[in-house]
């Protein structure tokens, strides 16, 4: 029974959305820094919601990635030897592990510091960029899964346009 698809689509969408929100958040923070730091303003509330979304997204991402990896190795059509032989699957496995590390880190940092991660240029930049990196990785990992199953991905025209080869 193909369980892997059930455990991958949901958190992939959430983490891609979190990456987009982190990018917007980083850009707007540099444009409207004072406004965001004033409690009670609409922007402050908006960024609070973005912060919570990214935090919960990191938790879901961490759990989802673990579940995705377990169910991925359980797939009847892909034995360990097959997974190891296919370049796309090797890419997925390797960068899934890196993704797990990134979201574990984001989760722990946000849980310990609260929304103070967004105070200060260095911490907000690193936190935001890691969310974006994790999101981009998970999008590519998911697209490779799509290619393995359907032969093409919604990401194909974008990578073709950028001139980037598939792994």
């Amino acid at each position: 029974m193909a369980l892997h698809p059930v455990f991958v689509h949901f958190h992939t969408g959430i983490l891609a959305a979190a990456a987009a929100l982190a990018l917007i958040s980083l850009i707007l923070r540099f444009l409207f820094r004072d406004n965001i730091r004033t409690p009670g303003t609409r922007l402050a509330r908006l960024f609070h919601y973005i912060d919570v979304f990214i935090f919960i997204g990191s938790i879901i991402g961490f759990i989802g990635l673990i579940a995705g990896m377990i169910t991925g190795f359980m797939e009847p059509d892909y034995s360990l030897a097959t997974l190891e032989a296919l370049p796309a699957m090797r890419f997925k496995i390797l960068w899934s592990i890196v993704c797990v590390e990134i979201y574990l880190f984001l989760m722990v940092v946000r849980a310990r510091l609260g929304d103070r991660v967004w105070v200060g240029t260095a911490s907000s930049l690193i936190y935001g960029i890691l969310v974006i990196v994790g999101g981009v990785l998970i999008i590519i990992i998911a697209a490779l899964g799509g290619i393995a199953v359907y032969g093409e991905s919604i990401l194909s025209p974008i990578l073709d346009w950028l001139g980037l080869p598939w792994p």
Binding site: V98, E101, I102, F105, G120, S123, I126
Partner: peptide
């Protein structure tokens, strides 16, 4: 790769986030 990413993240944790 996982080890080096882990080390980089730990360095970030100590140098950037622990200060806060």
């Amino acid at each position: 790769l996982p080890v080096s990413v882990g080390v980089i993240l730990l360095i970030f944790g100590v140098t950037v986030f622990k200060r806060r």
